[in-house]
Amino acid sequence: MNTAGPARRADSRRNRARLLEAAEAVIEQDGAQASLEAIARRAGVGSATLHRHFPSRQALLNAVFHEGVERLSRRAQELADTHSPRDAVTTWLDELTTYTSTTRGVTTALMADPEGGIAVEDSCHGLLHSAAARLVADAAEAGVLRDEVTPLDLLTLANALSLASEGDAETARRLLHLALGGVLSRTEAD
């Protein structure tokens, strides 16, 4: 009886879990550019094992932040279903900006994967883009947003504010509320 197959799969799952746990800790300390070698060392595996599970830095970041981003995606749906379009988009942007400004490294995970190694619909960027698209469509239809505002504009705005105020949610939120005057329709901004 050959037990190498299932044992290897269980070992592989444990290695992946240890890598994600190590990556969370190292990225929290060093940011998105954290040493992949340090992550592998902390997980107790070699760099080849890390690269087998996560072929790129972007793939690793996507895995580390996926749960938080899925929560934000669900929250956008909830807000769209229960709030006015204006309140839904502004509340969601506030929550997104707070999360990204206080979660070190996540802003890099929210950028589109330049190598295309992650399916867009599964990436952190893709999940948030889809969430923002619903909010933007609803807000545009209600006349709440300026016509030229796109989902990518809102993600870029939240990312930029988070980078400018990393670790300081209050500053990020204050800057967001100042910037909303540029994305809300002229009557909404007044």
Rank of each mutant, 00 (worst) to 15 (best):
T3I: 13
T3R: 14
A4T: 14
G5W: 09
P6N: 03
P6Q: 07
A7D: 15
A7T: 13
R8G: 02
D11N: 12
S12M: 11
R13D: 15
N15T: 09
N15D: 15
A17C: 10
L19I: 09
L19D: 10
L19F: 08
L19R: 09
L20H: 08
L20Y: 11
L20T: 07
E21V: 09
A23L: 14
Q29V: 13
D30T: 06
G31D: 08
A32P: 08
Q33H: 13
Q33I: 02
Q33K: 09
A34V: 07
L36C: 00
E37R: 13
E37T: 15
E37P: 00
I39A: 08
I39W: 10
G44R: 08
G44P: 06
G46S: 08
S47E: 15
S47R: 15
A48K: 10
T49G: 05
R52I: 01
H53V: 01
F54R: 02
F54M: 06
P55C: 09
P55S: 12
P55M: 07
P55Q: 10
S56L: 07
R57N: 07
Q58A: 09
A59E: 06
A59K: 05
L61I: 00
N62I: 02
A63V: 07
F65P: 01
H66R: 12
V69M: 04
V69H: 07
V69K: 03
V69N: 08
E70D: 05
R71P: 00
R74Q: 08
R75H: 14
E78K: 10
D81V: 05
D81T: 06
H83E: 15
A88W: 06
V89A: 05
T90A: 05
T90E: 02
W92P: 06
L93S: 03
D94Y: 13
L96D: 01
T98R: 15
T98N: 07
Y99P: 01
T100N: 00
T102Q: 12
T102N: 06
T103S: 11
V106G: 03
T108E: 14
M111E: 13
D113F: 05
P114T: 12
G116P: 05
G116S: 12
G116T: 08
G117D: 12
I118M: 04
D122G: 04
D122E: 15
C124A: 14
C124R: 03
L128F: 11
H129S: 04
H129L: 15
A133S: 14
L135W: 10
L135N: 09
V136S: 06
D138N: 14
A140W: 00
A142H: 05
L145P: 12
L145I: 10
E148S: 13
P151N: 10
P151S: 04
L154K: 01
L154R: 02
L154H: 02
L154Y: 03
L155D: 03
A158V: 02
A160C: 00
L161E: 05
L161D: 02
L163F: 04
A164I: 01
S165M: 06
D168L: 07
D168I: 06
A169K: 04
E170N: 10
T171D: 11
T171I: 12
R174C: 00
L176P: 01
L178G: 02
L178Y: 10
L180I: 00
V183Q: 03
S185Y: 10
R186P: 07
R186T: 12
T187W: 11
T187E: 15
